[in-house]
């Protein structure tokens, strides 16, 4: 399954605006997308509550996975959002 591993650079981590943008982007896609903190349990990337609950902070690594048509483009976009300072 295609995946991207990125380090979160935003000072507020994957919270607040970055989290909202991340979830909104994931929710627009027709395919299933998950995100995990490090080697942790993956959660639904379309759920703001699940993404917030991961408590991803600046410097943490996240693994984003998706499968299906357009998965690579979507993952690139999500990786960019997650790694934006």
């Amino acid at each position: 399954m295609p995946e991207r591993k990125v380090t979160v650079e935003s000072e507020v981590g994957l919270h607040a605006r970055p989290a909202a943008t991340f979830v909104q982007t994931a929710a627009k896609a027709a395919l299933g997308v998950t995100v995990a903190k490090g080697n942790g349990e993956p959660v639904n990337a379309k759920s703001i509550l699940a993404v917030l609950s991961l408590d991803v902070r600046q410097g943490d690594t996240v693994v984003i996975k998706a499968e299906g048509e357009g998965a690579d483009e979507l993952l690139d976009e999500l990786a960019l959002i997650a790694s934006a300072p």
Binding site: A16, R17, A19, A20, V23, Q24, A27, V43, N44, K46, S47, I48, L49, A50
Partner: peptide
């Protein structure tokens, strides 16, 4: 608006 938008996402949360 930023805060309210994020709150709207919570109300529409698929996991919830």
């Amino acid at each position: 608006q930023e805060i309210l938008k994020a709150q709207a996402l919570m109300a529409r949360d698929p996991g919830l």
